[in-house]
Amino acid sequence: MTEAEIRQLVLGIIADIVPDQDLSQIRDDEPLRDQLGLDSMDFLDIVMELRRRYRMQIPEEDYPRLATVAGTIEYLKPRLAQLAPG
């Protein structure tokens, strides 16, 4: 999966979780918490959504790495590659 594809995936999950927010102006390097007002409950939802869609387990100590879109892409890239068939 390319970074652009992973970015789409991440934004898709966020769009599901916070349907009120306009994501077109999102800046990848700034904390989602500041830009979208996400709180810890919303982060739990992101983690749960990754678990549901990709059967991916994310330990709690890794949550800080999901603070930005860029961080999330970087975190997911090797893990999604492992899941890819073949």
Binding site: P19, D20, D42
Partner: peptide, 8 residues
Amino acid sequence: LRQLRLPS
């Protein structure tokens, strides 16, 4: 609304 994914 967020937790239930309903747009306000």
